[in-house]
Amino acid sequence: MEIRPILSAMLRSKTGPVLIALQIAITLAIVVNSAFIINQRLEHMHRLTGMDHENLVFARSYGFGPNHDTLATIREDIDALLAMPGVRNAAYISGIPLSGSGSNSGFLPHPPEGENDPDSTNANYYNGDHRLAEALGLKIIEGRWFHPEEIEFDPTDTSYGAMPKVVVVTRAWADAAFGEGEPVVDRLVYDSIGRSARIIGVIEHMQGAWVNWDELDQVIILGNISAAHSVITYAINVEPGQKETRRSRRSCRRSTATAWCSACARTRTTSPAATTPTAR
């Protein structure tokens, strides 16, 4: 290709090159800005969640009525879920991670001193049962997960984050509260009013509710079932490739005492029934 005639033509008429240069400059500005925004989003998306989210489905059930028996409902529902073909595991959890809806509070490595103890370290907290680690695909790096008999339920305590006997924390929270790399298994964690629980295990990663929150990786799993809300969430681990088919199936059961509806997996939306008590 002859370059010289093109160049000389370009030199003679200034309009064309100026137009092209302007377009390139502005396009570049757009691309750079978009790339920056996209990159930010990608960073969020590619953060380690610590969960087997490829095969995770969440279902919610809402119990009501005077004869509603939370424990029995959970037991029956989980049995029913486990009996479904393609379901590898199912567990109770109080909320859906990364859904934008959840609970967060300050926890301490020692009993609180006064109303504003500076050692209070934020954590997204969830209530969970003995199956939850396997259902979410969490990796336990220190200690162990809950035994079935450790999971408590007190129907009279309607507070959010009622302290159980045992908890599991993420390494990120342990680092923030106790110091980088400190061994925490068998140490006590306190809530803001001084109730304590024993740390029995540490998980490598898990994420809380709010994608854009700085302390997203600081999570505590409480080894009890919450009576604070009527909504029960199930984390269901399905065999690879089953997620879409499970997602499309909606089942609802009706009885005189209880009714439950599965609102199926909506991993990243605000669920209608969750509340977010936070200690700022």
């Binding site: 009527s230 509340t275 977010t276 936070t278 200690a279 700022r280």
Partner: peptide, 15 residues
């Protein structure tokens, strides 16, 4: 069952 945003600052028993 309440839905929405609840923010607490005071360490107090909410049981």
């Amino acid at each position: 069952d309440r839905s929405g945003n609840t923010n607490c600052w005071k360490p107090e028993n909410l049981d």
